[in-house]
Design a protein around this nucleic acid. Structure first.
Lengths: 138, 138
DNA sequence: GTAACTGCAAAATATTTGCATCCTT
DNA sequence: AAGGATGCAAATATTTTGCAGTTAC
């Protein structure tokens, strides 16, 4: 088992339970983003829908994961990088949604271009979602 | 009544009905984006939830409106520009979500910066959602 | 042992579908 | 008149909440 799992949970002052470990493991193994449904499937019917809801919510609050806005408005979650802390995301990378295989990946190495806002607007977060065809589906 | 309303519907080969006119009017009057709930409220209990669902879906298919991915994953819709046609959106502007007043507006005059994708990736659409404080809430 | 977490049941919401009726063309 | 659009009812799906039993620390 990945030693990072316990560390991440402890760092966020969460009890280390089997459910949380399992969900966290899914995120660590799967480079991409996962929806509630994905987790339910991949976890292998092991635990309750409700537990997944609550776990994802706690992870969000603690800054372990973040949610990704998608063009089709499905709800996706992905691991945050180390420099995310509770309530303060520095999630400045591009998300890519493949229209063929449906997977969503974080393009860590593509930096978010700066956006010039009109006078009076202040930005605290910028999400960029690119839709298209990924390298595996080409 | 705004003469554009009838034109838009006719151009999309849709029957001009009171429900569609009303919903379209809301979009034309309100510069920002609307959620299903917003429409229900603003329409003044006049028509059925189901009609709203179906109308929004038809508008989406015809390219009259598009949906906006938001950081909190609520579903928002906004009018498409003239150069949108059914199934082919050229929705290349930035969306701004105000964390204070909750409104979402399209920043038509802020162009989408180009994004360099890794080898093998092809993009067909880029959505940029900026979260922050708008000029009215500052 | 205590506080936190989980599972089950159930409630509250949201979305989809079928069908009869009404409206637009 | 014919086809599409609407409203109502009901079926599904999704998310939230309460509570009792279990587990982590």
């Amino acid at each position: 088992m990945d030693s990072r799992i316990g560390d991440i949970l402890k760092n966020s002052q969460l009890s280390v339970t089997s459910g949380r470990k399992k969900i966290l493991e899914l995120f660590l193994n799967d480079a991409g983003a996962l929806s509630h449904g994905d987790i339910e499937k991949k976890a292998g019917e092991k635990f309750d829908r409700v537990t997944i809801y609550r776990t994802l919510q706690v992870f969000l609050e603690k800054g372990i994961i973040h949610n990704i806005p998608t063009a089709d408005n499905s709800i996706l979650y992905a691991l945050c990088k180390d420099d995310c802390s509770a309530g303060h995301h520095h999630d400045n990378h591009v998300h890519f949604v493949c229209k063929d295989c449906g997977s969503t990946v974080c393009l860590e190495d593509v930096s978010i271009p700066s956006v010039k806002l009109p006078k009076g607007f202040t930005s605290t977060q910028i999400d960029v979602v690119v839709s298209g065809v990924c390298k595996d589906c080409k």
